[in-house]
């Protein structure tokens, strides 16, 4: 079974198939690239969701807040994605990738899984919680990855929620 669990000694371990590990690594890398190469605010709904306005009804305050915080926030998100990529960079055993994640690693994983799902959700135009019908094969793949990563995140929350 892929996902996270807590061992009897208290360590949080994740187990994935080689393909699953590759998908997460690729997507985390894409989040990193998306944030690193970002240009002006307002040109990509996914980025607007990853780095949202702090003020809803005051553009000046929102812009000023963004000026002071956006770079650091984006940098932290890139760093978290980097932690995820690096933690999956292990040799598979019997076609499974098994990793141990420490406390800071868990924090990075939770945030990066969220950032990936926010981005996929934005690309899929998710507007409500109801399951939606994919429009083409590409959407079908994105949707199944989106749902699967939700499951993976749920297993991680359960593993740390003691």
């Amino acid at each position: 079974m892929s996902g996270f669990s807590r061992s009897r000694s208290g360590d949080v371990t994740g187990t994935f198939s080689v393909d699953e590990a590759r998908i997460i690594r690729d997507l985390a890398g894409q989040i990193s690239g998306l944030l690193t190469d970002r240009v002006t605010h307002g040109s990509d709904p996914a980025l607007d969701r990853l780095l949202p306005d702090a003020y809803r009804d005051n553009d000046d305050n929102a812009a000023e807040f963004r000026r002071f915080t956006e770079d650091d926030l984006a940098e932290r998100k890139v760093r978290n994605a980097g932690v995820v990529v690096l933690s999956l960079d292990v040799a598979p055993k019997r076609k499974r990738v098994s990793i141990e994640v420490d406390d800071p690693g868990v924090q990075s994983w939770l945030r990066t899984l969220t950032d990936i799902r926010l981005t996929l959700g934005s690309r899929l135009n998710t507007v409500d919680e109801a399951p939606r019908t994919p429009q083409d094969e590409n959407e079908e793949i994105m949707l199944s990855i989106y749902d699967w990563l939700g499951y993976v995140q749920e297993t991680l929350i359960r593993a740390i929620d003691v």
């Binding site: 969701r49 990853l50 949202p52 306005d53 702090a54 003020y55 009804d57 939770l110 945030r111 926010l118």
Partner: peptide
């Protein structure tokens, strides 16, 4: 509140701040 909002954005939650009566 600005610190909290930034922390929420760090977690990927959608948060804003405003005056309490707004």
């Amino acid at each position: 509140m600005e610190r909290h909002v930034e922390a929420m954005h760090d977690f990927g939650l959608w948060a804003t701040l405003q005056k309490a009566d707004a």
